[in-house]
C-alpha cells in the first residue's frame, strides 16, 4: 500500500481558500495530491467558477480531482491508499456532514485532519450567535484538528476534543505560493466585505437590513469616492438576493488569494475572518456592528468599531 497520499475534501465553496496552500505544500513534499469534491459542493457552485479554481490548483499540483456522490464513492477513492486527509470544514453540524462522514469512514491507513477555517469557527471559537445557531457541543470526526491558537483560547472547544488539537495557525499564513493577483481589481480605495448570510446577522434578530442601510448611507456620503464590495464566497448574499447597490460601488467576487488585500486603502466588515486577512495585509480595519450592538464582537475587541454612518465616515 502506498501511504504517500494527501487527500483534500472540498465541500463548501470557501474550503478552497483554506486548503489551497496545503495542496501546494503537499505537492512540493512529493505527496500524491487528490481532491475529493462533494456532490453538495457542485450544487453550491452554480456557475462552475469555483470548480475552475479547483482545476487550476489541481493542474499546478498534478492533483487528481474526484467528484464524490456519497460516502461509498469516497471510500472507493481511499481504498488501498494511506496518508493524510484534510478537511477545511468538518464537524457534526448538518452542513458539514459530507466531510464529517468521509472522515468517519476513512480507512485507518489515513490520519484525518480538520482545519480551523476561520478566526471565529464552530467547535473552536464561537460568537454568541454561533452558540445560538449551532449549540455548544460541536465535535469533530478527525483524528487531529489544526487550530489557530492554544487550547486556552479555544473557548468553544469541548474537553473531549482538546486532545486532538495541534496549533498550526491559519493556512492563510502559507498563502505565498504562485498566487496570481487579479490586477483588474481597483486599488487604493476602501474594501467593504459582506457576510450577510452568516448566523451572526440572523441568530439574534435580522441585522441584515441594518448593515445594508448603513452601507448605503456610507456610500452616499462619500459619493465622490469609489468603494469595493466583496460578498462572502460561501454566502454571496448581495448577488443571490439581487441587492441594488449604490453607483459608486464595484463588486469584486474573486477568491481571497487573488484579491491581494494590501491593495486597498482600508477595510470594513462585520465580524468575520476576513478582518484577520485585512489585518495581515496591514491595512486599517474597522469592525461593523449593528447600531444597538446586539451582535457579539467580543472576539474582535480592540479593533475600531463602526456602528453608525458617522462612525464609518469618521473611520476614513
Amino acid at each position: 500500500m502506498n501511504n504517500n497520499y494527501a487527500i483534500f475534501i472540498i465541500n463548501l465553496l470557501q474550503d478552497i481558500n483554506i486548503l489551497r496552500p496545503l495542496i501546494f505544500m503537499a505537492n512540493s513534499h512529493k505527496l500524491y495530491t487528490e481532491i475529493l469534491v462533494t456532490r453538495q459542493f457542485s450544487a453550491r457552485d452554480k456557475g462552475g467558477s469555483w470548480l475552475k479554481e479547483i482545476e487550476e490548483i489541481a493542474s499546478k499540483n498534478n492533483s487528481i480531482i474526484y467528484p464524490v456522490k456519497d460516502d461509498s464513492d469516497a471510500l472507493r477513492v481511499l481504498n488501498r491508499k494511506g496518508g493524510v486527509i484534510y478537511a477545511a470544514s468538518e464537524s457534526n453540524l448538518g452542513a458539514h456532514s459530507p466531510t464529517h462522514n468521509i472522515l468517519k469512514i476513512a480507512p485507518s491507513s489515513f490520519t484525518t485532519t480538520t482545519l480551523q477555517h476561520g478566526f471565529e469557527c464552530v467547535g473552536f471559537l464561537q460568537s454568541k450567535q454561533h452558540d445560538i445557531a449551532h449549540g455548544t457541543n460541536v465535535e469533530f470526526a478527525a483524528d487531529t484538528v489544526c487550530g489557530w491558537f492554544p487550547e486556552e483560547k479555544m473557548k468553544s472547544m469541548l474537553d473531549s476534543q482538546k486532545d486532538k488539537l495541534i496549533v498550526t495557525g491559519p493556512t492563510l499564513a502559507l498563502q505565498n505560493t504562485a498566487t496570481e493577483i487579479d490586477n483588474e481589481i481597483p486599488k487604493d480605495i476602501g474594501l467593504i466585505c459582506e457576510n450577510l448570510h452568516s448566523v451572526r446577522l440572523s441568530s439574534s434578530g435580522d441585522l441584515k437590513a441594518d448593515f445594508m442601510d448603513m452601507f448605503e448611507g456610507f456610500c452616499n456620503r462619500i459619493s465622490e469616492q469609489k468603494v469595493v464590495l466583496r460578498p462572502h464566497p460561501g454566502g454571496q448574499y448581495v448577488l443571490k438576493n439581487k441587492v441594488k447597490l449604490p453607483s459608486n460601488v464595484t463588486l469584486v467576487n474573486s477568491p481571497t488569494y487573488k484579491v491581494g488585500m494590501s491593495r486597498f486603502a482600508y477595510g470594513v466588515s462585520a465580524p468575520s475572518s476576513v478582518i484577520i486577512d485585512m489585518l495581515l495585509a496591514k491595512i486599517p480595519v474597522a469592525v461593523w456592528r449593528d447600531s444597538e450592538a446586539v451582535m457579539d464582537a467580543d472576539n474582535f475587541a480592540g479593533l475600531t468599531e463602526v456602528r453608525s454612518i458617522d462612525d464609518w465616515v469618521k473611520f476614513l
Binding site: 456519497d70 460516502d71 461509498s72 471510500l75 472507493r76 481504498n79 488501498r80 469512514i105 480507512p107 485507518s108
Partner: peptide, 23 residues
C-alpha cells in the same frame, strides 16, 4: 449500495485488516 451507509462503513474500520470495498 444501500448497505454502504456511513454507520456501516464506519463499522468496517474496526476490521482487523485493511480492506477493499466495491459495489
Amino acid at each position: 449500495k444501500r448497505a454502504m451507509t456511513t454507520e456501516n462503513l464506519e463499522l468496517l474500520k474496526s476490521l482487523p485488516i485493511n480492506f477493499y470495498l466495491d459495489e
